[in-house]
Design a binder for these strands. Structure first.
Length: 514
RNA sequence: GCCCCGGUAGCUCAACUGGAUAGAGCGUGUGGCUUCGAACCACAAGGCUAGGAGUUCGAGUCUUCUCCGGGGCACCA
């Protein structure tokens, strides 16, 4: 829609032979103007008399025949679309997004395979998946990654914890406990090596994580193994590249990387005990990612914020453009039950499992809640509200609109009415809703550009709100007026299609009945 | 101490990157099913956008200071 307005304004400017001092904006017009869109193009024209420029522009826009009203309220030129323009857009359907040249790799969740997913992982999972869907819809070629830290100290500790549990001995320092560890301990033979048990445990826990993700409708293209980075020599190759840049040095018995340009201080690659840090393999991993894609996007919890600078610095040392590594941080979610804030601690085992939350609230509601706020706002997730008042949950408002329209189509079938593109029969009462439908691709583009899925939820609330109101005031199927009925049915069909597409971008189902 | 993110209606959050008279959901109050699905609709109440100063035609949005909340400052991930 905004493209359409922009083209119209451009056309008018060309007609006037206008010279511009800068780009102009197109925006929605406020209610009191009784118009749809506005532009500040007049004040961006290279003339002294802005008022005259605005009047000239308004005149040229009027001549286009696309608008039923154009009025100047300085500094804006406001436009009201002609019903014919709107109906044509509605009938034509959304323009598909052209394929983008850049290939995009998005990595998210990447929780350590040392235990099941818990509430803390959920927001990143849901945001990442929604973004992947939005990117794909808006023309990017997209690959999704889950990076698996399947080696190193934590994994070894997991194996040792399981062995200890098996032998009935106390946990090693900082070790793991809980149902997960005990469950695996039951199924091993005590003679196995730590390595073997660790590998087995990782495999099993990862399988559980995948199951949880599938419940949410999340399926990754690739689970990328850290171990593989070592086995295939990527880590050592990356290290050589860094050494070539003279960025690697030894100090106090450890090996360091100079990342001081973007971080507070230099960071360690090999510890004094000779073990590599996770930082080293992370760098190798990102080098590999950039071999596959033009833009790499990571979804991280805000608690990893301190890690951003050093990784960007390292990526730059490898000759990559650090701006093409986009790290999207999401703030942490606090869980509430009514007024009660839930204290969660990994150590006490009091954190809530992702599966429990999904059981309690349902996958669609979980996804809707966690994706309906922008990532850099921290949020409180009230389980009581999401669960007990689930019938008033906004997600049902959207799904209900979809189901309702499905039901209308069923009824239409019984009545022998078929949808047909709208003509003059559709009146003013459908104006707002047609306009809203035609704004869908604007919102998808916005969500894609800003890497912010919450624009879609807000849009869908507006669209469905308009439809529910329209439905209440206008009978779609009227046996005495088949022509009007078929056109209103077409309109309803476009609403249904748009709601389904929008929910699809968020990974939320669009049920036909509920 | 330094860095990052927040502070908007009673609560949870929006506001199309600087646009005009700041919007939804929940909660509260009133009204609406003989009619395509009432998980819905209509109307109402609710605001000095934490506070001060600045930038310009114009600020919730940009700069700066103060206050409050969250997170981070490892040879842990």
């Amino acid at each position: 829609m905004l493209d359409f307005i922009r083209e119209a304004v451009n056309g008018a400017l060309n007609l006037l032979g206008a010279e511009m001092t800068g780009d102009f904006d197109v925006m929605t017009a406020p209610d009191f103007t009784n118009c749809d869109y506005a532009t500040n193009a007049a004040v961006k024209m290279a003339v002294k008399n802005k008022k005259k420029a605005a009047d000239d522009l308004a005149g040229a826009l009027e001549k286009s025949g696309l608008f039923e009203d154009v009025k100047v309220i300085m500094p804006f030129v406001n436009m009201k679309l002609a019903m014919g323009s709107l109906v044509k857009m509605l009938n034509d359907g959304d323009r598909p997004f052209p394929a983008k040249k850049e290939k995009l790799l998005i990595e998210f969740v990447s929780a350590n395979p040392t235990g099941p997913l818990h509430i803390g992982h959920l927001r990143g999972a849901v945001m990442g998946d929604a973004l992947a869907r939005i990117f794909s819809f808006t023309g990017y070629e997209v690959i999704t990654h889950y990076y698996v830290n399947d080696r190193g100290r934590q994994v070894r500790l997991l194996g040792e914890s399981i062995l200890a549990a098996k032998a009935g001995q106390p946990q090693p320092e900082g070790g793991y406990s809980g149902d997960c560890v005990n469950g695996i301990a039951k199924d091993i033979s005590s003679g196995d090596s730590v390595e073997k048990i660790s590998d087995m445990a990782v495999e099993r826990i990862l399988a559980g994580i995948k199951t949880t993700l599938v419940r949410l409708g999340i399926v990754f293209d690739i689970f990328y193994s850290e171990k593989k980075l070592y086995d295939e020599g990527h880590v050592s190759r990356t290290l050589e590249k860094l050494k070539d840049k003279k960025a690697v040095f030894e100090k106090d018995g450890a090996v360091w990387l100079d990342v001081s340009d973007r971080d507070d201080k230099d960071r360690v690659l090999y510890k004094t005990d000779g073990e590599p840090t996770y930082f080293l393999s992370d760098i190798a991993y990102h080098d590999e990612k950039f071999n596959e894609a033009d833009i790499c996007i990571n979804i991280w919890g805000a608690d990893h914020h301190g890690y951003v600078g050093r990784l960007k610095s390292a990526v730059e040392l490898l000759g990559r453009n650090a701006d093409k590594l986009e790290i999207i941080l999401y703030q942490l979610v606090r869980l509430k039950r009514g007024d009660q804030l839930l204290k969660m601690s990994k150590r006490d085992g009091t954190f809530l499992l992702a599966d429990d939350v999904i059981d309690e609230v349902g996958p669609d509601a979980v996804r809707f809640f966690l994706v309906s706020r922008k990532g850099d706002a921290q949020m409180d997730f009230d389980l009581d509200l999401a669960k007990e008042q689930s019938s008033k949950n906004p997600v049902y408002y959207l799904q209900y609109a979809h189901a309702r329209i499905c039901s209308i189509f069923e009824k239409a079938g019984e009545m022998g009415i078929q949808a047909s593109p709208c003509g003059g029969m559709i009146g003013e009462e459908a104006r707002d809703i047609i306009k809203k439908i035609c704004e869908f691709t604007d919102k998808a583009a916005l969500a894609s550009q800003e890497r912010a899925p919450h624009h879609i939820t807000g849009y869908l609330m507006e669209l469905c709100g308009l439809f529910h109101g329209y439905y209440d005031r206008n009978k779609v199927l009227d046996g005495s007026d088949p022509l009007l009925s078929s056109q209103r049915l077409f309109l309803a069909g476009r609403v249904r299609e748009t709601v389904k597409k929008g929910l699809g971008l968020l990974g939320i189902t669009a049920p036909e009945r509920m």
